[in-house]
């Protein structure tokens, strides 16, 4: 079960080549889906355009449930990209995993805490950036002392807790899913009887993982919008 990863040092940074590959694959798939779906657009949508418009409406709903559209409209592209990227990334590890020389190459990029925490930090950093930009530094800073001044340390902890939970929730769900899939696959390949025995739970778990992957993409986007709304809205 223990798979290693090929790492390479380049300009002072350590790259996990598997992650680099899977991030690139996810990004390319998302880009292709989105661009191919919007190549031939018409006033009467059909096929892929219809699907993408449904996604847009879905993300609009997420944003609309956390803040008013006037402030939330600018986050639509971010939300759309996030939900599609995370969903595709979650799905990539489900059908198979590729292991070369005990090194795991094909997996979900979101099954790595480095990746999910990077996304989480990016989101929280964005929320702070928009908080300062849209409310001014004074009002943004005053938020940390509300409703009471002595809660300031808790507010600081909250920011880090938010970041950690946002990233680790996604990582944990996807990593656990892939782990169990790997275990079932290992069981299935150890013999004919075990193969037959493992087939049903394998299918069930894959179906469940698709569900979990979709839900986690939704939750990540939802929480992103909640954190952003918390920082940019004036009514707190």
């Amino acid at each position: 079960m223990e798979h290693g990863a090929v790492t390479k040092d380049f300009i002072g940074l350590t790259f996990n080549l598997s992650n680099v590959l899977m991030i690139t694959v996810s990004s390319v798939i998302v880009f292709l889906i989105a661009v191919l779906a919007t190549r031939s657009m018409s006033m009467r949508p059909g096929g892929m355009q219809n699907f993408l418009e449904w996604v847009v409406d879905f993300v609009k709903g997420i944003i609309g449930s956390t803040m008013d559209w006037h402030t939330g409209g600018r986050f639509l592209a971010l939300g759309l990209t996030l939900i599609m990227y995370i969903f595709v990334a979650n799905m990539l590890g489900l059908p198979f995993a590729v292991v070369v020389d005990h090194n795991l190459w094909w997996k979900s990029p979101t099954a790595d805490p480095t990746i999910t925490l990077t996304l989480a930090v990016m989101v929280v950093a964005l929320s702070h950036y928009y908080g300062v930009r849209m409310k001014g530094f004074k009002e943004y800073g005053a938020e940390f002392f509300k409703p009471m001044k002595f809660l300031f340390p808790l507010k600081i902890i909250e920011e880090f807790a938010n970041t950690l939970t946002l990233g680790l929730r996604l990582y944990g769900n996807i990593f656990a899913g892939e782990m169990l899939l790997a275990l079932l696959a290992g069981l299935g390949t150890s013999g004919i009887f075990q193969g037959v025995f493992a087939l049903l739970p394998m299918m069930v778990w894959q179906g469940f993982s698709i569900f979990v992957g979709a839900i986690q993409a939704f939750i990540f986007t939802m929480l992103t919008m909640v954190y952003l709304a918390h920082k940019v809205s004036h009514d707190h």
Partner: peptide
């Protein structure tokens, strides 16, 4: 820590965001 992964994820996500905004979300919107 795989610092390279962090950088690569960040850069690729930003590139994806910019490209999609230009080629997909913009026209769709």
């Amino acid at each position: 820590i795989n610092t390279g992964d962090i950088a690569f994820q960040l850069v690729s996500f930003i590139i994806l965001l910019v490209l999609l905004r230009k080629y997909a979300w913009g026209p769709l919107m």
